[in-house]
Design a binder for these strands. Structure first.
Length: 196
DNA sequence: CAACCGATTTTT
DNA sequence: AAAATCGGTTGC
């Protein structure tokens, strides 16, 4: 497995921040997707060690969207998407990868934000792409349905200052065959890339 | 119960 | 451009 060395979070930073509350996720999915950029995803491994990195790439999926797993209603796989906002929706895909989502909007709505990339620093590439992100952080189906809103959870998300909206780039989503035209992929650009 | 497909990644 | 690889979903 790839090293997590550079993903460690200082205790001071960790203790000074709260988890994003469930209410953060109980908003329009595209709004939550944009707001998640820059927030800190934290993974507590079985060893007790913490790894963390800011979210830099996400995609929004809503119930009315044909590319969404919840489009045809609740199934065994996607039922957690219909649960309360702030839960982790993890699914297994292509026979070898897991992908991590955050459930959005109120119970009964099948919506979520797919986490596609974190800014890991030195170990370039190991956190870019939803499959690699989960592989690096050892996230699998055992985490499906866990709350991301409390520090006792092995996966949670910490608050962070809102980013400059000018740094957010919108593009079509990756790897889907339906509703390709929607610009529901959001990427956080480097602050110094705004020169013009 | 067989067949097909997929919110990916890596290799050819 | 295509393989790797398998659970979920669909259709017979």
């Amino acid at each position: 497995m790839d090293t997590l060395e550079s993903l460690y979070l200082s205790k001071d930073t960790y203790n000074s921040r709260e988890c994003l509350p469930s209410s953060f996720y109980d908003r329009k999915t595209q709004t939550v997707a944009r707001a998640l950029l820059g927030k800190l995803l934290v993974r507590r491994l079985s060893t007790g060690e913490l790894a963390a990195a800011p979210i830099v790439e996400v995609e929004a999926y809503t119930q009315e969207d044909r590319a969404c797993h919840a489009y045809k209603g609740p199934t065994r796989r996607c039922q957690v998407m219909f649960g309360p906002p702030g839960l982790a929706y993890v699914y297994f895909i292509y026979g070898m990868y897991h992908c991590l989502n955050v459930v959005t909007e109120g119970p009964g709505r099948g919506c979520a934000v797919l986490l596609r990339g974190l800014d890991g620093g030195a170990p370039k590439g190991i956190l870019s792409g939803p499959g690699k992100l989960c592989r690096t952080l050892a996230i699998d189906l055992s985490h499906n349905g866990l709350s991301l809103c409390q520090k006792t959870s092995p996966i949670h998300i910490l608050e962070a200052p809102a980013v400059d909206p000018a740094r957010i780039l919108e593009t079509p989503r990756i790897g889907i065959s339906k509703d390709k035209h929607l610009n529901w992929r959001y990427l956080l650009q480097e602050a110094d890339s705004l020169e013009k």
